[in-house]
Design a protein around this nucleic acid. Sequence first.
DNA 1: CTAATATCAGGACAACTGATATAT
DNA 2: CATATATCAGTTTTCCTGATATTA
Lengths: 150, 150
Amino acid sequence: MKRLTAKEETALVAAAAVDLRVVVGQLRRRLREQAQPDDFTPSQIAVLAHLERFGPSTVTDIAAAEGVRPQSMGATVATLESAGVVGGTPDPGDGRRTILALTPAAREWIETNRAAKEDWLFRAIQTNFDAAEREQLAVGIELLKRLIKS
Amino acid sequence: MKRLTAKEETALVAAAAVDLRVVVGQLRRRLREQAQPDDFTPSQIAVLAHLERFGPSTVTDIAAAEGVRPQSMGATVATLESAGVVGGTPDPGDGRRTILALTPAAREWIETNRAAKEDWLFRAIQTNFDAAEREQLAVGIELLKRLIKS
DNA sequence: CTAATATCAGGACAACTGATATAT
DNA sequence: CATATATCAGTTTTCCTGATATTA
């Protein structure tokens, strides 16, 4: 392994930064363009996934987890509520809070969607990568998580 | 290495998909919130980085590389031109094309920005990852590029 | 009274579609 | 005439900020 000069190292890091910026932008666009007319947007899917994974939560909880403002998350959640996939009940112990949960319709949609493999990202990972590559992908995702928290 | 059942494999792929969605969204927001008032937006920085790495290009070239429509890229480039960091000269061999290039002011900005460590992503990769991890990150990015093209 | 929760109103960014002018 | 490049105009999505009501 060759020892790099500071200048060479800087160039490599800069190249990685460029690539990562591009990939993030493209992935985002790819995810969005998969959305069908009667489908949910990426932000909406993220909320459904959060509720499925972490259980009933408040708007503020979800906003903090996703890294957006409560007002922004409120708008997303409102859309999901009127679509009938998220329901809110007042917190019995704290009148300010509204506890959000998935409706049966939401759980059914998630099941159906995964079974029909209509999730582009899911299918793409499954069909394009072998076990070793999926492991590498997982390592890369962990590195990105660390980057975000830094 | 344990042999996985189909069900276990499906769960792993689904988890990777969820993680990747979240990471993409958070990285995007992280990049955006770094923007200072007199700074460039993420899309603008992506264009500057592209021109630095690949040299003079047309709007259509950059749009294809970034995966957006020429009209969208045209708007971003127009802003950069009026900011004086990108200049366009007509292609001598093809009157339809305008060759875009970084101005000296742009190169100065890039230098200053990196030296002042104001580029969050650049600095984060440099300070958080060692050489081996940067290699793993590069592998992960290559996998994501393949995913996008699939 | 201060802090937390949620919501309303308006605005910015970054993409989109459709249409058009010009050059090959 | 068909294709490629670039641009104009209008729209959408998703986030933002600032202000406000309500409850703890």
